[in-house]
Design a protein around this nucleic acid. Sequence first.
DNA 1: CCATCTTTACGAATTTTTTATAAACCGCTT
DNA 2: AAGCGGTTTATAAAAAATTCGTAAAGATGG
Lengths: 229, 229
Amino acid sequence: MEAKQRILVVDDEPQLTRVLRRSLSTNGYDVRVAGDGDFALQTFRDWPAALVITDLAMPNMSGLELCRRLRSISEVPIIVLSVRGEEKTKVEALDAGADDYITKPFGMDELLARIRAALRRQPPADPGAHILEAGEFRIDLEAHTATQSGKDLRLTPKEFDLMVHLFRNAGKVLTHHSLLGAVWGGDFTEQTEYLRVFIGQLRKKIEMDPSNPRYILTEPWIGYRFNPE
Amino acid sequence: MEAKQRILVVDDEPQLTRVLRRSLSTNGYDVRVAGDGDFALQTFRDWPAALVITDLAMPNMSGLELCRRLRSISEVPIIVLSVRGEEKTKVEALDAGADDYITKPFGMDELLARIRAALRRQPPADPGAHILEAGEFRIDLEAHTATQSGKDLRLTPKEFDLMVHLFRNAGKVLTHHSLLGAVWGGDFTEQTEYLRVFIGQLRKKIEMDPSNPRYILTEPWIGYRFNPE
DNA sequence: CCATCTTTACGAATTTTTTATAAACCGCTT
DNA sequence: AAGCGGTTTATAAAAAATTCGTAAAGATGG
């Protein structure tokens, strides 16, 4: 499971921060709110966010100053929100280190898109995110290869898909219905004969004794379960 | 003295491009203009810009498609200019790979500030980045030439593009889908017959024994992989 | 006209689907 | 506990569909 990306929201209007917190959270981000610049800097040191959204007008420290201070310690993307639409203000903010400037009122979809754009060019996602591993099995989703104890299993595409779904739910019982739906699509959830054939092929490739399976177990009348041991 | 940073402006309104060219030039950028998406891509290949500014509405290829195509071959910052201010359009553009979206009419100072912001977070351009080298192969993106052991391969434009994509991802498996999207564009990701033909042509030009390829390997049912050895 | 790109066709190899048959499992009766 | 339908599961093998490589015929654009 991938860790949620952190977003620090800096604003002193509870009305706005409440909306932002909710929208960002439901979109899969980990959100914290700081009410002024000082608190924002302090929070950022303890809880380094992947992105900062800040208002310009704030008590204590202006958004401009916050941009400069953040820039001096980090390259974190900064999006400035402001009611002020004058060009001069925008230029100041952008030159103070902001990456983007959005004028209120704004659409939440646009903000989310700009957040995605800003996060996209940040550090490339950690390598190995596309590798599944358990027991002596290892699946590389990008290279499309599956190995057992280092040996390539040479799975066909459907076998590979099936293996991935079993793997992703290792230990759990998967119903015929759900497996068929996941691998073959919603129109084939009754075709249990496909499953029998392909489970058999997989067993031939990964089990020592296919008729006495140790990894791909049958749950009679329900489905199958993958036990990577 | 540092070389001027290159900006590619893509728009079909001479009125606007003239203004942009002048303003950007006087602000120290090296500017070229392309009238449509196809020409923009072509120009970008020979003259890799540090930033691209594009309109959305254009003949031939939409700005959206241009974003996607550029993204597939480069991480160059893209700023979209458009008269259309609807949120949906902005979201589409940003998700297609644009880094920023500015609604016309806009202030030149703001555009310049956004350009500075976009260029600021870009790693300084590395001279000689237009030369790719691996094994006995060498590709010069500016000169548009590919050589094997010093001998010119005389690749056609499409062959060249395909080669570059294989090359940039040497060792990795590239799916049919991703190769077609990168070389032919998003509307051709199902045209696997193109790929068969062009992979065959490339093999004829670089493999000793085309029917027993050593460099361009087939990953059955998935795609191809370039192994520069 | 020429180089390039697109489209079509076909055989060989491989995979997926379909079909057939044997084996295993459950609840029930005797 | 043994036996018996009815159902589910395992396995093998056929038929059908798909993919890949290749050649070559149209189409396109300068």
